[in-house]
Amino acid sequence: MSEVKISAATRTEFGKGAARRIRREDKVPGVLYGHGSDPLHLTLPGHDLLMALRTPNVLIALDIDGGKTNELAIPKSVQRDPLKGFLEHVDLQLVTRGEQVTVEVPVHTEGELAPGGFLLEHVLNALPVEAEATHIPESVTVSIEGLAAGDSVLAKDIKLPKGTTLTVEDDTVVLQVLSAQAEEAPEGEEAAEDEAAEA
């Protein structure tokens, strides 16, 4: 799992106006919470944070106020501008080495479905799991090779890295294969429509 060091500063100004000023400086307002401590309001560098968040469940080593405080955190909620995509706000969860945390890990697929024009439905795009804070998997990969309509992949079918456990029921459906819907009407219906048009 990736660990990224980011410098941050505590902030004492709040509200929309303060948030806009922070963003104009290419920075992002954020909150660090967890372990029963009071939320710590932070200002984080926009570009560094954007690059870090490209890795799901990235472990962030926070250097706060020039090293006065050092904390480990994982992203829990990220708000982006719906049109431009830039970061508007981030919630970070405080973690410690050795601590078990619950996160959602992206599900990736490999292989090809059986011939026949079947459709693959992602019932879950991410799999809820529990893992040690410094060893959270970036993703899990599932083989769909040869699957056909009616086949499904359950949570228990997915191989997890050592030390990672499911936090959903074993029989939770993660992926399922559907029949492609016929776009053309059956021949009998087409003939009836033609007769009606001629009449």
Score class of each variant (00 low, 15 high):
residue 50 L to I: 05
residue 23 R to S: 10
residue 101 V to Y: 02
residue 55 T to M: 06
residue 122 H to F: 12
residue 115 P to M: 05
residue 32 L to T: 13
residue 77 S to C: 02
residue 126 A to P: 13
residue 51 M to K: 15
residue 124 L to P: 10
residue 166 L to P: 11
residue 121 E to T: 12
residue 142 V to W: 03
residue 42 L to I: 12
residue 8 A to V: 00
residue 72 L to P: 01
residue 19 A to D: 06
residue 60 I to T: 14
residue 18 A to E: 03
residue 77 S to L: 06
residue 145 E to Y: 01
residue 179 S to R: 13
residue 123 V to W: 07
residue 58 V to A: 14
residue 157 D to I: 03
residue 198 E to W: 05
residue 83 L to V: 15
residue 1 M to K: 10
residue 194 D to T: 02
residue 59 L to Y: 11
residue 24 R to K: 15
residue 5 K to S: 11
residue 171 D to E: 10
residue 98 G to V: 08
residue 68 K to C: 00
residue 84 K to E: 07
residue 191 A to M: 07
residue 180 A to L: 02
residue 9 A to D: 14
residue 123 V to Q: 10
residue 187 E to S: 13
residue 117 G to R: 04
residue 138 E to I: 02
residue 64 I to L: 06
residue 10 T to V: 02
residue 65 D to K: 11
residue 148 A to Y: 01
residue 129 V to L: 04
residue 183 E to L: 11
residue 163 G to D: 04
residue 174 V to C: 02
residue 124 L to Y: 05
residue 192 A to M: 05
residue 44 L to D: 04
residue 176 Q to I: 00
residue 117 G to F: 06
residue 112 E to A: 07
residue 109 T to S: 06
residue 134 T to I: 00
residue 39 P to L: 06
residue 106 P to I: 07
residue 47 H to I: 05
residue 59 L to E: 04
